[in-house]
Design a protein around this nucleic acid. Structure first.
Lengths: 149, 149
DNA sequence: TTGCTAGATGCAATTTTTTTGCATATACTC
DNA sequence: GAGTATATGCAAAAAAATTGCATCTAGCAA
């Protein structure tokens, strides 16, 4: 990453700085930029899309992959599978999920999935499992525009 | 695919034959073998795992990919994301979902996700979406063995 | 049965996505 | 400000998925 981009990122990153620290991850310009673009975009992003933002700052794709993995482990971000053949990521935090159009790829959020109750039930049902830390809930179908065709 | 494998597959495939026909897909040895191995294994399979079964019959990986796409489109099989970095597939039909261990990859089924009610609510909430045809519900966490470590 | 045709397959090549190794740089601790 | 564990960049490779095209075949109709 370039020196100026690094400085800038470190300055602007106050809110995410604490988040990173609190999970024991180092605060670096690349990670701040990553979190920032995810926050700004507010929908699941592909690595490609993320790189369109990070590359101008001099960040490498490999760094993006590694950061994504690390921050996902720590629960700061979330992997989302939109069935596009590659991973998408979004900021963790708000408890929402996605409606995905199988034709045009449109994504809409929805809330209130009741997954906590579900997780509890599943855990009770299970013999092998001790703890549930994450969940994926995506609904696939057709948006109104694509439905017509 | 070899001639003998082809014959054998076409003979044994009675139950799946009708399923394929009913969705307007052709009945071929490769597809029958694919459906059969998914049924037998009874858990989400990677392409690799599927190929370990189909390759001996002379089927190509590309055929597997194409068949999987086609049959998924028609709702005979389902794609499952276990966060292993590649797609998994299982037979559609039974309404169950998965608990996945983030450490060792163990997979366990659970039922009763109440996703139908969820889908109805989501659809009511949504402005863009007309219809929901599929859903993905996976819970990630740690199995008892991995939890200790 | 036979022949026809749309659709499925095999093969080779390619593209896309993700991972790895290693040398260097840097965030954090003291 | 120095030391150290960790993150980064670069190059390379591995893994996953797709494409083009020639051939084959399942399903249909004669």
């Amino acid at each position: 990453m370039t020196t100026s981009a690094r400085k800038k990122a470190l300055q602007q990153g106050a809110p995410f700085r604490d988040a990173l620290r609190s999970v024991g991850e180092r605060v670096t310009p690349a990670r701040l930029a990553l979190l920032r673009v995810l926050k700004r975009t507010r929908r699941p992003m592909s690595i490609q899309a993320i790189m369109r933002d990070l590359e101008p700052l001099g960040a490498d794709q490999v760094t993006a992959y590694r950061s994504l993995h690390a921050l996902e482990q720590k629960g700061l971000i979330r992997q989302v599978d939109l069935r596009h053949g590659h991973a998408h990521y979004e900021l963790a935090g708000s408890d929402h999920h996605h409606l995905v159009c199988l034709r045009c790829g449109a994504v809409e959020d929805f809330t209130g999935c009741g997954v906590d109750a579900m997780a509890r039930r599943a855990l009770k049902q299970s013999r092998q499992f001790a703890r549930i830390t994450q969940h994926a809930v995506e609904l696939f179908g057709y948006c109104k525009r694509c439905e017509k065709k």
